[in-house]
């Protein structure tokens, strides 16, 4: 077939497309459009559920992803954790794989880094040992006693988080589906100690929430089908409320669980995380949204470019006559 503009368009070197996408993904960081991000029902339902919990409740935040899906899953996990910390909801952190445990540590390091505006100041298990010895374990009493002893919250911090009272790092265990099943009877039977070797049974939050039956929500952030373990072994066995934060690629696979009432809600990809960040800002927890929101302008620009290429490709396909039988084979290099 004779070479013309249409055949040249269909045979465009894909590296040009990579270059365009690269440029489009960099420019909006410097010149943001500020397009609004409107939260959807599936994300609002998770936010509202967490919003109705307090210090007397407890949730699981499970980092069930590895570095491959970090850009999508991490902002979701960070957003839900910051929400829970703001409301003093005790959080059990788990991970379904060794690399996921690294993600858990990375996520907590981000949330508790003083360089982050609105970070949470960690008080380690050892640091508040004397208050435990005095029998002070109730959340508000503990904070009051801690501050009465001259500890001052830094100006850019959103609050204290006491290890063992506000959060426990359970970490990774193999065959995690069976670990979930075991935790429906007893959390301590699966995790006698936390990741740092602290005795879990002595932690006030475990004494108040001994098994998954005493837990009010399991939020799993996952890049694989491992998130469904929480439904299979948690939701179906004991009725544990479950929320998903999944990669965009798998978002459509799990929407069925919302329709069937097995999920409270679902965050899909970076967009889902950005929606949660907007909800946190609207509720007055933080002055500005976090990283996922910043990425949404870039996402919009990249999508527009991809749409443009799809339209252009289709114009070239039909205008060049490639839709006729056999024409494509002759016209493509």
């Amino acid at each position: 077939m004779k070479e013309n503009i249409w055949s040249r368009m269909l045979n465009l070197d894909r590296r040009w497309i990579f270059l365009f996408i690269g440029v489009v993904c960099i420019v909006p960081f410097f010149f943001p459009f500020g397009l609004p991000v409107l939260p959807t029902a599936h994300v609002i339902s998770i936010f509202d559920y967490v919003e109705n919990l307090g210090p007397e409740n407890a949730i699981f935040v499970s980092f069930d992803f590895d570095p491959g899906t970090d850009p999508e899953n991490m902002p979701m996990a960070v957003a839900v954790t910051r929400h829970a910390f703001s409301r003093h909801i005790p959080v059990f952190f788990t991970a379904n794989a060794p690399l996921a445990q690294g993600m858990l540590e990375s996520g907590l390091a981000y949330i508790t880094n003083p360089a982050l505006e609105g970070y949470f100041h960690v008080v380690s298990w050892q640091e508040w040992a004397q208050y435990r010895d005095q029998g002070i374990t109730e959340r508000d009493q503990l904070e009051a006693a801690w501050e009465a002893d001259g500890n001052v919250l830094p100006a850019n911090s959103s609050g204290w988080v006491f290890e063992g009272r506000d959060f426990a790092k359970l970490g990774y265990l193999p065959y995690f589906s069976l670990v979930i099943l075991g935790m429906t009877s007893s959390i301590a039977s699966q995790y006698p100690e936390d990741m740092n070797g602290n005795p879990l049974v002595e932690m006030p939050m475990l004494q108040e929430h001994k098994s998954l039956r005493d837990v009010d929500l399991a939020a799993t952030f996952s890049g694989t089908a491992a998130c469904t373990w929480w439904i299979t072994y948690g939701r179906e066995k004991i009725g544990l409320p479950v929320a998903f934060g999944v990669t965009a690629v798998s978002a459509t696979d799990y929407t069925i669980f919302i329709q069937s009432g097995q999920l409270i809600g679902q965050m899909g990809g970076l967009r889902g995380a950005a929606e949660y960040e907007v909800l946190l800002q609207n509720a007055g927890y933080f002055d500005k949204p976090d990283r996922a929101f910043i990425g949404m302008d870039v996402q919009n620009a990249a999508h527009l470019l991809i749409l443009f290429f799809i339209v252009l490709g289709n114009i070239a396909y039909f205008a060049g006559g490639f839709h006729k039988k056999g024409a494509l084979l002759k016209g493509r290099r």
Partner: peptide, 13 residues
């Protein structure tokens, strides 16, 4: 597509 672009955004960030 959204997921793949998100991963790229993460690295560019």
């Amino acid at each position: 597509v959204m997921g793949r672009i998100s991963l790229l955004i993460g690295r560019i960030q």
